[in-house]
């Protein structure tokens, strides 16, 4: 096993760069969602998505977490989660759903390069995510 200063420094550097990259996503998302909450916009969105989210055992505002995870990435989802008061059950459902399907803009492109078309991977991941949401939503509520 080789572990030397150069390897550790490289890891540390990559970790810090990645954290800075992520903060560019997390901080604006958290600020945006907090504003959305304070302006009453989140409540309107929540009411709008409540019936749909109800199928997944989630409160309406969780739609914002789901969308930021699906479209942006898991860090954006966590940024919006920290701006809300979600129950542990809701966080578990969201974490499992988002684990299966997230960062679609970036990851679908990578899957495509790896030889699997978007028309296959997108329904696969979204379908599995919704399936687990309905399953866990039914079990935990």
């Amino acid at each position: 096993m080789t572990v030397d200063g150069a390897i550790l420094r490289r890891g540390l550097y990559k970790g810090i760069v990645t954290t800075l990259e992520l903060s560019k996503v997390i901080i604006p998302t958290a600020v945006a969602v907090t504003f959305l909450d304070a302006s009453g916009g989140l409540e309107i969105l929540a009411e709008w998505f409540a019936p749909l989210m109800g199928w997944l055992g989630l409160p309406g505002e969780a739609a914002v977490v789901l969308f930021s995870g699906y479209f942006i990435n898991l860090y954006a989802a966590i940024g919006s989660m920290t701006a809300m008061n979600l129950s542990m059950e809701a966080m578990i459902i969201l974490a499992v759903m988002l684990g299966l399907c997230h960062s679609m803009i970036v990851e679908l492109a990578i899957s495509k390069k790896a030889g699997c078309p978007v028309s296959y991977i997108l329904p696969l991941r979204l379908g599995m995510s919704l399936f687990m949401g309905v399953l866990l939503g039914g079990m935990l509520q």
Binding site: S23, I27, I78, T82, A83
Partner: peptide
């Protein structure tokens, strides 16, 4: 929002 965001960054 900012403090919430920094908390998130610290977690990660």
């Amino acid at each position: 929002g900012l403090t919430g965001g920094f908390e998130g960054v610290w977690i990660l």
